[in-house]
Computed example of a mutant assay.
Amino acid sequence: MNKAAKIYIAGHRGLVGSAIKRKLEQQGYQNLLCRTSKELDLRNQQAVEDFFQAEKPEYIFLAAAKVGGIQANHNYPADFIHDNLVMQSNVIDAASRHGVKKLLFLGSSCIYPKFAPQPMRETDLLTGTLEPTNEPYAIAKIAGIKMCQAYNRQYGTQFICAMPTNLYGPQDNFDLENSHVLPALLRRFHEAKRTESPTVTVWGTGKPKREFLHVDDLADACHFLMLHYQDNEIINIGTGKDLTIKELAQMMKEIVGYQGKLIFDPTKPDGTPRKLLEVSKIYKLGWQAQISLKEGIKQTYQWYQAYF
């Protein structure tokens, strides 16, 4: 992937896509193709076809997706399965027909069964039932994986599939209703500190365990895999470490400087009991995460304060 190659970053304004764009710019890539959803609606097959016909990208980072936390997945299941299926199908098919040299498809750790053995290995895919709260999204992502693998087998394409763990960082969605747990908590603590609220309520029991990866580490991994990974099988990207939601909340409370009390609401869903990725495969290739969770949350909070 030479520095002058035409590289299309699908979803360049989102959490993941913006980090990949920053990484590639830092590495000196000079020919990045970026389109907003208004400029190019990936759900529109003809629009996607016209884009590929005109621009002829050589490499693709497929980071465009409709994403959200438990409540968003609960409220908009049809949107989550439809939009993701259509967007990824349009891009993957066009990439094959227009001779794209390599495509990286980004999945999610939610593709694994709800009660998969921990940590979750790549071979655990499709060995059990999914977590109901995000099943439509997970099924769409699994379809994307299988589509890439099928195109590789039938057409000889080089479409690789990376499964990141829970992500956070600059450009995240901090909406209290539709965001993931870490940005939602960060905003909640910030608002509680600002208004001197005596309590902050956290959904669920606080017992589920989660792994978190800074999005800049993910971008570094995506660049690394585009250069060094050719396998038709999926590959996990994570830190190999997790903590409880209660421990996460306490860490964030300390970073924000909130002095009030934490309350856990067990009437709200916990989601999957544990989600830790087994990451020896990517570690053996020579990549490891560099940003600690505490340092990453500090950086994210500084970014949040600057922009909100």
Rank of each mutant, 00 (worst) to 15 (best):
M1C: 03
M1Q: 06
N2G: 08
A5W: 02
K6A: 07
Y8F: 15
I9R: 11
I9D: 06
I9C: 07
R13I: 04
G17V: 07
A19Q: 06
I20F: 08
R22I: 00
K23W: 00
Q26V: 05
Q26C: 04
Q26L: 12
Y29C: 10
Y29R: 11
Y29D: 07
Q30N: 11
Q30E: 15
N31I: 01
N31Y: 05
L32S: 04
S37Y: 10
L42C: 10
Q45L: 06
V48M: 08
E49V: 05
F51Y: 13
A54F: 02
E55G: 03
K56M: 13
P57Q: 09
Y59L: 10
L62Q: 13
A63H: 09
A64P: 13
V67M: 07
G68C: 09
G69S: 09
G69H: 05
I70L: 15
N75D: 15
D79P: 03
F80G: 02
I81E: 05
V86Q: 13
M87C: 11
Q88C: 13
S89V: 00
S89H: 12
I92G: 00
S96Q: 13
S96K: 14
R97E: 11
K102I: 01
F105R: 06
S108M: 06
I111E: 12
Y112I: 06
A116L: 05
P117I: 14
P117V: 10
Q118I: 14
Q118T: 10
M120Y: 01
T123R: 03
D124M: 08
T127C: 13
L130P: 02
T133R: 10
A138E: 05
A140V: 08
A140Q: 06
I142L: 15
G144N: 03
K146C: 10
C148H: 01
Q149V: 06
Y151L: 12
T157S: 07
A162C: 11
T165Q: 03
L167I: 14
Y168L: 09
E177P: 00
N178T: 14
P183M: 00
L185D: 14
F189K: 02
F189I: 06
E191M: 11
E191H: 13
K193S: 09
R194L: 15
T195D: 15
E196Q: 15
S197H: 03
T199S: 06
T201I: 04
T201S: 03
V202P: 02
V202K: 01
T205K: 05
K207V: 07
K209V: 05
R210V: 06
R210L: 12
E211M: 01
F212S: 01
L213C: 11
V215K: 03
A221Q: 07
M226S: 03
Q230E: 12
N232I: 09
I235H: 08
G238L: 07
T244N: 09
I245G: 11
I245M: 14
L248I: 05
L248G: 05
L248K: 05
V256H: 08
G260E: 10
L262S: 08
L262Y: 14
I263E: 01
I263Y: 00
D265C: 09
V279D: 00
K284E: 15
Q288E: 05
A289L: 04
Q290Y: 00
K294C: 03
G296I: 11
Q302D: 12
W303L: 04
A306R: 15
Y307M: 11
